[in-house]
Design a binder for these strands. Structure first.
Lengths: 109, 109
DNA sequence: TGACTGTATCGAAGGTTGTCGATACAGTCC
DNA sequence: GGACTGTATCGACAACCTTCGATACAGTCA
């Protein structure tokens, strides 16, 4: 039985791993990043990076572009939009109408 | 080796399961919900619901309040805020061409 | 106190995930 | 073509997760 068929859960699971979250954050910082660069930043072996990139690709988070020997990965704007729409649907604190105010982190123990 | 120590990953993992996402969505719709009600909506056995509620509690997503025999669960606003801040850090909803410009804070009249 | 209800915990089974070494595949350069 | 580099896939292992029946615990009511 597949663990997750729900697309929202898939999207969240894609980002829910520390290594993949690090990859996503790298992609936020830099527009397009060569696969070889993740091996350095994430401190895991090359097959592991490749695996996580595949997971991200299948979850819809990233797109790929081949340039010679290198393969460049980029965040897919529609995935980010879906993630932010999901986040907005949780919207107790930041309903779309008030989206311009900063999210205030309540000091809760 | 623990799978996840990163708090952001923990938060995402908390929501990344279909059953838990359904629980969270129930909590968005209704303010405070009795544990017994999740058993009905999620189509899983009572121990499973209890387990997922525990995961959500440990990830910081929900708080509990006892009322007699029943235990009521509620979404924690700070968790929602953290989730939305994470989502916001993934970039703006603006199209990719403008994604690199600064957050637009309109100097409203 | 004893019966009853609601919830958490325990223990186990089965599936999934993260990881890496070895290896195969794809493209470049000589 | 042949050597070389970058990336994906394979196979295996250990850890983890989801699930549920059985059971224990907590609170209420008669």
């Amino acid at each position: 039985m597949p663990r997750t068929t729900d697309p929202d859960s898939r999207l969240l699971q894609g980002a829910a791993d520390p290594t993949r979250l690090a990859i996503i954050r790298q992609l936020i910082a830099g527009d397009e990043i060569c696969a070889c660069d993740f091996t350095a930043c994430c401190e895991v072996a090359q097959p592991t990076v490749s695996h996580h990139l595949k997971v991200l690709r299948e979850a819809g988070w990233v797109s790929t572009r081949r340039v010679g020997l290198n393969i460049y990965y980029a965040l897919r704007p529609d995935a980010v939009a879906r993630f932010q729409a999901l986040s907005a649907s949780f919207g107790l604190l930041a309903p779309p109408a008030a989206a311009r105010s900063l999210p205030v982190v309540q000091p809760v123990g």
